[in-house]
């Protein structure tokens, strides 16, 4: 297995760095952090590390999650491993040497402070090569609109966990689409459905982050 395949495996299994105690069968071996440094030292480009290493690992664990073969803990540690690798890649993205697939603004809807689901979506999208602008929880339509304008971005994803706050989505979706021509607004969260998405005129509901990420990769952004 070459270095980049090992990196993909570390992301998939959630091996953050050498000292990280998980998974137990990878104890005392290099993790995503060390392998990324090694790859950069050997001349591998940041783009290639992202695409052939991190994205492959996140894609594998994301697919397992969508199939019911992996659960929230596996996604959380995979994202931790990916973030540990991204620390080393950040300067290359900042200098423009490496490029994201596109940008997306995400946040939990106004009135709702739950952010576990939204965070997981953010992690998976980062792992799929997106520049994720995370506005946190309890986000108003105005905040979404400002962030979309500031980042010259047309994609927004809204999350709601509560059956009470999901009702705030309709007005937020309407305001964003009214303010930003050509914008697309997606929704996710435990109580939502395709029917609800249609009803509030959103551009789609996705039951898990992997399905969402796959869909986004089909868009021309």
């Amino acid at each position: 297995m070459d270095l980049i395949q090992r990196l993909a495996l570390c992301v998939e299994r959630g091996k953050v760095d050498r000292n990280f105690p998980y998974p137990p069968d990878m104890k005392d071996s290099d993790g995503a952090s060390e392998l990324t440094t090694l790859l950069l030292e050997t001349g591998e480009s940041a783009n290639s590390i992202l695409k052939r290493g991190l994205m492959v690992g996140m894609d594998t664990v994301g697919a397992k999650f969508a199939n019911g073969q992996a659960f929230i803990p596996e996604l959380l540690v995979a994202a931790k491993a990916m973030n540990a690798a991204m620390v080393h890649l950040k300067p290359y993205f900042e200098s423009g040497e490496a490029k994201h697939r596109g940008s997306i603004v995400i946040g939990t809807i106004q009135g709702d402070l739950h952010d576990i689901g939204k965070n997981i979506v953010g992690m998976v999208l980062k792992g799929a090569g997106w520049n994720v602008i995370d506005l946190g929880s309890n986000v108003s339509a105005d905040k979404f609109i400002t962030a979309l304008r500031d980042n010259n971005c047309k994609l927004a994803a809204l999350s709601a966990l509560l059956t009470t706050t999901m009702l705030n989505m309709e007005s937020v979706v309407g305001e964003i689409k009214g303010a930003i021509t050509g914008s697309m607004v997606f929704i996710g969260g435990a109580p939502l459905s395709n029917e609800f998405s249609d009803k509030i005129d959103a551009d789609g509901y996705f039951p898990d982050p992997h399905t969402f990420s796959k869909y986004l990769s089909t868009l021309n952004t």
């Binding site: 990280f20 105690p21 998980y22 929230i72 959380l76 931790k80 739950h114 576990i116």
Partner: peptide, 9 residues
């Protein structure tokens, strides 16, 4: 509690 225990959170 809304947060995840180590090593996952």
């Amino acid at each position: 509690c809304g947060q995840h225990l180590l090593p996952f959170g």
